[in-house]
Amino acid sequence: MLKTRVIPVLLYQQGRLVKSIRFKEHRNLGNPIQTVRIYNARNVDELVILDITKTPAGKEPEYKMIKEMARECFMPLAVGGGVRSLSIARKLFLSGADKICLNSAAIENSGLIGKISRMFGSQSVIVSIDAKKRNNHRYEVITRCGTLPTGLDSVEWAKEAERRGAGEIFLTSIDCEGAMQGFDLELIRNISTAVTIPVIAHGGAGTPLDCVEAIGAGASAIAAASIFHYTHATPQVVKQELKAAGYPTRNKL
């Protein structure tokens, strides 16, 4: 049976790992390579690394750093941040990314999802959606690390991303991110009923039970950072809780 994935998220900014609250208040968490090594030793299901360095246009991701992290990683690695073109995606795959996360550029460059998925397969393209709650149960898509409102409805955009060739949706609630008060279950429900590709829920995990609720709301996997950095809950503890709730998870080796 397919196991429910629990995915630690690493936010990378200028050579260090950070953690934010609602996309702000970045705190330093130290050395990225060391952290990847620990997660690999713990046999986590998958890792997502997002480079949130605000880079001037034209600057490319730090491929060398990605390579160093990928070398420590014998589980799937998704990399996002600054993936603006097919050639950047290609270089990331060559640097050890197994999947790439597209966010702002997927909207700003309408052909990009299709181009990358035709070349590398749709399974390697994750479309990352940062959503903010508005009135009438609507969620607006915000790009550029939570700074640029697009006017797009997140449900409509998720459907469109699937149609263009996305293999998974990485769904972040901006309102819940880093707050550790639980996921936005309505958002998860809305998006996972709208698409048939897997949805990874991100933003809000404070306790293992929060993660159980996110899966109950329709997510295929949960992704989190603060809970693993700031509490005693490890990915394994979250998986035990999921298992107790009847969701299959991968056994500890």
């Binding site: 397919l2 196991k3 299901d45 293999g167 998974e168 048939t196 897997p198 295929s220």
Partner: peptide
């Protein structure tokens, strides 16, 4: 044949 299952089949499976 996905039926009601999501595709791609992505993740850990036995």
């Amino acid at each position: 044949k996905g039926h009601s299952l999501r595709l791609p089949h992505v993740g850990w499976d036995d």
